[in-house]
Computed example of a mutant assay.
Amino acid sequence: MVSPPVVIYPPDEDGGRRVRVDGTILGRAYGVQDVARFMQEAGLQEWDEMDVVRSPLIDWRGGGPDNWTH
């Protein structure tokens, strides 16, 4: 089984979650809007928050898109 190309790691002590796309860490997100911005920067300009929440391309580790606390 191939893992999704986007991984959102569990929240850290500051509530940030590392975002990895195709093996590269793009930064830390503090909400779904930040993840959408990273996806746009990665070439998916049309993506918004709902795309992030619904996409099977994203592997949410340590909680889904509603979990932003450590």
Rank of each mutant, 00 (worst) to 15 (best):
M1D: 10
M1R: 15
M1T: 04
V2D: 05
P4L: 06
P4S: 03
P5N: 13
V6R: 05
V6K: 03
V7K: 08
I8C: 03
P10K: 04
D12Q: 08
E13W: 05
E13K: 09
G15I: 04
R18Y: 02
R18H: 13
R18I: 08
R18K: 13
G23K: 06
G23V: 02
G23N: 06
T24D: 15
T24F: 04
T24G: 02
I25K: 13
L26I: 12
A29W: 05
D34A: 02
D34Y: 01
V35F: 13
V35Y: 09
A36L: 11
F38G: 01
M39G: 00
Q40Y: 06
Q40C: 09
Q40M: 05
Q40P: 06
E41Q: 14
E41C: 09
E41M: 15
G43E: 03
Q45S: 15
Q45R: 12
Q45E: 05
Q45N: 15
W47S: 02
W47Q: 07
W47H: 09
D48A: 07
D48F: 14
M50Q: 14
D51Y: 12
V52W: 03
V52C: 02
V53W: 07
R54C: 15
P56D: 07
P56N: 14
L57F: 06
L57M: 08
D59F: 08
D59Y: 04
W60F: 10
W60S: 00
R61I: 06
G62N: 01
G63F: 13
P65L: 09
P65E: 14
D66V: 14
N67H: 15
T69F: 10
